[in-house]
Structure formats: structure tokens, C-alpha cells
């Protein structure tokens, strides 16, 4: 049990998020109305994705430094889990956009950047699949991963801020800082990010363990 404490923290955080996310106080804002509660579900998808991809980048750097196959497995599985959260982020964002902006997709800098960023990581997955040689696969994908992450961060956090954007937190459009009850929302938002990230790490951890088993079986 002592090894599983972080999973427990994640699960408890998410129960808290579900309960308070639906029933907590929210500021009454036009257009957004109750959909502001998506802050606890849509936004943490992106935060978790980013943290998973950051961890993946760290392991890619470690791999290039020490050349341990284990680090390649950890980096790639963290990236795949991050991509999964990114897809969920796009899908949930589209539902929210349809009901507040009136359309599933607009050519907003934030949205297009997120889409380009996701395509970059799809390319990472395809790149890995395309190379048969195990060592080459690990090296090339590690280098790609290390370059992809900063570009992705610039794409979704820097560029949208430089132009006008519908998306909160961009182009003079404030994030949730503006709301009267922002501190109450933070009290749910941060545990939500923690919970979803730990859940993502749990899934990634399972994938890493399965991958290691596969490797041992293939070697024998």
C-alpha cells in the first residue's frame, strides 16, 4: 500500500473535484452561466497534458544523457498519455465552444495552435512507429520530443496572447482571475489539476510497466 499513496491522493482529489465542481459556488456570468464549471474538467485536461509532456521531455533528455532504454520507455508512454489528455481537452473544448461561442470550432489562435500542437505529437507517435531499429527509434524520437515541447508551449501559451482571442486568458481576454469568486474556484481548480494529473500518471505508469514486460518477453 505504501507505494500507492499518490494514486490515493489523485482519486480523493477527483472525488473532491466532482462533488465541489458540481455543487460549489460559482460567479454568475452571462453566456458562461453554469458552464463555468468546465473550469474543473476541461482546463485540467490541458494542464495534465502539459505536465505529462513536460515529464516526458525530462525523460527524453535523461535518455540522451545516459542512454538507458528504460528512460525511452518512460518518455514515450508519458507522451502517449499526454496526447490522450490533449484529445480529451480538444473534444471537451469543442462542446464548451458550441454552447458559449455558438460554434464547434473557430479559427481562434488558441484553438488552431492547440490543434497544430496535437498534430506535432501525433507526428511523434508516427515517427516512433516508422522506425524499426530500436536504438534509432529511441534517439530520434527523444530529439524530436525535446524540440516539440518548447514549440508546443510557445504555440498554446505565448502566440495566442499576442493576438486577439476569444479564449479566456489570451489577447487581453482575462482568465478566471476576473471573477469575484476566483479564490473559491481556485480551491477546486488546483485539486482538480492535481487529481487529473495523478490519474494520468497512474495510467502512464501502467503503460510503462506493460511496455517493460513486453520488452522482457521480446528479449527472451
Amino acid at each position: 500500500m505504501y507505494k500507492h499513496w499518490w494514486k490515493l491522493i489523485g482519486v480523493v482529489s477527483l472525488y473532491y473535484t466532482i462533488l465541489r465542481g458540481f455543487t460549489g459556488e460559482i460567479p454568475h456570468l452571462p453566456i458562461l452561466e453554469e458552464s463555468i464549471r468546465n473550469l474543473y474538467f476541461h482546463v485540467p485536461m490541458w494542464f495534465s497534458m502539459l505536465l505529462l509532456l513536460l515529464a516526458s521531455t525530462v525523460y527524453s533528455i535523461k535518455f540522451l544523457g545516459k542512454n538507458k532504454p528504460e528512460h525511452d520507455i518512460i518518455a514515450s508512454e508519458l507522451a502517449y498519455t499526454g496526447i490522450f489528455f490533449g484529445i480529451l481537452g480538444i473534444c471537451t473544448g469543442m462542446i464548451w465552444a458550441k454552447n458559449t461561442w455558438g460554434t464547434w470550432w473557430t479559427n481562434d489562435p488558441k484553438l488552431n495552435s492547440a490543434a497544430i500542437g496535437m498534430l506535432m505529437y501525433f507526428a511523434y507517435a508516427i515517427l516512433r512507429d516508422a522506425i524499426d531499429d530500436v536504438e534509432k527509434k529511441a534517439r530520434i524520437s527523444a530529439v524530436y520530443n525535446i524540440f516539440a515541447f518548447p514549440v508546443f508551449v510557445v504555440l498554446i501559451f505565448v502566440l495566442p496572447r499576442l493576438t486577439a482571442s476569444l479564449h479566456p486568458g489570451n489577447g487581453g481576454n482575462p482568465g478566471f482571475n476576473q471573477y469575484d469568486l476566483d479564490n473559491k474556484m481556485r480551491l477546486i481548480f488546483y485539486p482538480a489539476v492535481l487529481g487529473w494529473t495523478l490519474l494520468g500518471l497512474w495510467i502512464a505508469h501502467l503503460r510503462i510497466r506493460v511496455k517493460k514486460i513486453e520488452k522482457i518477453i521480446n528479449e527472451n
Binding site: Y15, Y16, G24, E25, P27, L181
Partner: peptide, 11 residues
């Protein structure tokens, strides 16, 4: 986990 507004508060 206590949610007083579950039965009385909305803003």
C-alpha cells in the same frame, strides 16, 4: 467535502 450550498446556496 462539506457542501453547504448543495441544499441552500447558489450565487
Amino acid at each position: 467535502f462539506h457542501t453547504p450550498n448543495l441544499d441552500m446556496l447558489t450565487s
